[in-house]
């Protein structure tokens, strides 16, 4: 079970958090302009990589804030956490 450093609250047990899938997927501003394939790309296609992954997390049983996390899925090392809208601190 991870210890997650919520950017608003500090270190907390993983059980207080909810994972929210891949990060940095922006909802298209004009969905109506998109073809079925383009919309499907946004709607369904998510990465599931072994290695460094950018993820959304929500401090559901805490401050309820969403934030981003960089996690190495091969060893669960959390490399960074950062607020929504901020640039990832690592590539």
């Amino acid at each position: 079970m991870f210890v997650i450093n919520c950017p608003f609250c500090g270190e907390r047990e993983q059980s207080e958090f909810k994972a929210g899938g891949e990060a940095h997927i922006v909802r298209p501003k004009q969905p109506t302009e998109l073809s079925d394939d383009e919309w499907a790309e946004y709607l369904f296609m998510r990465k599931n990589i072994k290695g460094v992954q950018f993820e959304r997390w929500n401090h559901a049983h805490g401050c309820r804030k969403w934030f981003n996390m960089v996690r190495d899925t091969s060893n669960d090392e959390i490399k960074a956490v950062y607020k929504m809208g901020e640039k990832p601190p690592i590539e």
């Binding site: 909810k18 929210g20 922006v26 909802r27 959304r56 929500n58 559901a60 309820r64 804030k65 969403w66 929504m84 809208g85």
Partner: peptide
């Protein structure tokens, strides 16, 4: 509630 918060915080801040 969670879903609405999600959109407010991440898509439409």
């Amino acid at each position: 509630m969670g879903k609405l918060e999600d959109y407010l915080q991440t898509e439409w801040p």
